[in-house]
């Protein structure tokens, strides 16, 4: 995957956390992994990609980050179901925002949310997943991008 494509997703992450307010997000250097399980946190939102691109986007985060994020949006319910909702919505927003530059044929699914082991989209090739480290406040999350 070219650096310019990774930049599209990094911009989506920065924009999302900008709206969450207060502290800006810090993005670490992206690195390659073979399986999203290598970076999986408590909750993972998975978006399947089809159309001109095939693959998936994963947003995986610890419950502490999700609780803080939910509260910063103004919601007081930080229950398990709300954290599942939040992780799916973040994955949806970050991948959906990539369409500004990837176009309408970057087709995204509704989110599939998992707690613990992530929902893994079948990989049709040996393509690696780019893991983009996200540091927000004292928490760490990852956006995983797997595109053929």
């Amino acid at each position: 995957m070219k650096e310019e494509k990774l930049k599209i997703f990094i911009d989506s992450i920065v924009k999302y956390f900008h709206y969450a307010g207060q502290t800006s997000v810090k993005i670490g250097s992206p690195f390659l992994i073979k399986d999203i399980k290598e970076v999986t946190a408590d909750y993972t939102g998975t978006i399947s990609i089809s159309g001109d691109y095939q693959g998936a986007c994963y947003f995986t985060a610890p419950s502490a980050l999700l609780k803080h994020l939910i509260l910063s949006i103004g919601e007081v319910d930080t229950s398990d179901s709300m954290m599942q909702d939040a992780v799916g919505e973040v994955a949806n927003t970050m991948s959906g925002n990539a369409r500004r530059r990837l176009g309408k044929k970057f087709i995204i699914s509704t989110p599939k949310v998992s707690k613990g082991a992530p929902f893994v989209v079948d990989k049709k090739s040996d393509a690696h997943i780019y893991a983009i480290p996200i540091n927000w406040k004292s928490y760490k999350a990852t956006l995983g991008i797997h595109l053929n």
Partner: peptide, 27 residues
Amino acid sequence: ISALNDVATGMEALEKGAMGFVTKPFS
């Protein structure tokens, strides 16, 4: 109110009858 922020999708929604578009995330 959608995360799909490409121009073509916005145009399609307006053509179908929507009257405005807000991109997620939003304030």
